[in-house]
Design a protein around this nucleic acid. Sequence first.
RNA 1: GGAGGGGUUCCCGAGUGGCCAAAGGGAACAGACUGUAAAUCUGUCGGCGAAGCCUUCGGAGGUUCGAAUCCUCCCCCCUCCA
Length: 404
Amino acid sequence: MNSEFEKQWAAISRGAVDLLPLEEFKSRLKQSIEKNKPLRVKQGFDPTAPDIHLGHTVGIRKLRQFQQLGHKIVLIIGDYTAMVGDPSGRSATRPQLSYDQIMANSETYQKQFFKILDKSVTEIHYNGEWFAKMDFKSILELAAKFTVARILERDDFEKRFKSGTPISIHEFLYPLMQAYDSVAIKADVEIGATEQKFNLLTGREIQQDYGVEPQVILTLPVLVGLDGHQRMSKSIGNYIGIDEPPGEIFGKVMSIPDSLIYSYFELATDIPETHLKEIKAALESGMTNPMNIKKELGQTLVAQYHDAEAARTAREEFERVFSRKEIPEDVPEFDASGYGGRIWIVQLLEDSHIVNSRGEARRLIRGGGVSIDGVKVTDEDLELALKNGQMIKAGKRRHLKIKI
RNA sequence: GGAGGGGUUCCCGAGUGGCCAAAGGGAACAGACUGUAAAUCUGUCGGCGAAGCCUUCGGAGGUUCGAAUCCUCCCCCCUCCA
């Protein structure tokens, strides 16, 4: 029994930043093992965008570990909280989404969750299940359980308040809603990123107010996005979606700053501990070209969300197109048969939607970014004699094959 | 309700009558280089076959030869007081 606890504790605490309150957490786990009663482990996701990205997977992968240890995972799809938008870590109010948009997103969310989690043993709830039924009186009761001073303890609110950035009342409700989710599903454990700590702890207090045994909490590091500074987020656009095509995932991985390589391995992949150590050593020694380690990261992630074959292809494709500057495998064709054999290059770029405007086409040409069959275009007035199979390249990623 | 301060291009932010398609930074895109769609450096960064013209500085009117800049009304945000 004791060794079972040690085993579980090691798995659970790996990679975690905070386990609070620590002793309570341990005893809850012990009890669960002794009584053979799985812990109810909760995490909420607001379907504010159609994609689950690598940042989400940090938590989801932790959930899977719990699941593999036999605990009960309870996913909350925050259809109601999404209408507020979690202000955590944000410096401005989120735009409010329409309900239809939210529902459409939650569809894709569910599909993507179960790329990682085992659907058959996962409990899933929309928080609209309870919030839609709440009347105003119940909302007042909930709101009365917390004070403005307490909520202003939260760093992001405090900053906004002090700097005079608007905070709407409904944003104050967010932590209470998330906390109430824990009441509704009787969570034993709630997990989230470190920036969620306040919300998670609020859950404890509100649960007690409603006579439910308070949850313990587990926080995980925030995954930094492609830009290397801000947290990975859909709204910032610095993310890798797990549903993206192999080439996209691989390419985006290659675009992260070298400094992020290790944390991506640590937080977003399944590689064993021993290999993780090797990677750390390799990065620190400077003996290995970080590019190669990054390629391995890209391949690992593609394999994780597609398969090993796709990963290999993505890598080969990347090496072909970007390292050797050759032509990619699949180039979109453009039917240019209607031009009578000749076309102004700028017009061609615009008509094929490879650029957004003629101005952009001109600029690209001036900057030396356009080539035809490998020959750089220097004249923006060029009247191109069209040939079947001609390859047009605009910038490093946009290719076009002429079809007549 | 009162007093004051604001709303500028994707974002932040400068600009208070012509030199403003609007400084600077960020993002983005491109080029060079390379060890990568890293880093670094350089360039571009509203639209138009490019000449000038058109659209843009919260909205609608107005003053003026000329308005992001001045006036009027309206909308929105912030601060302090009540």
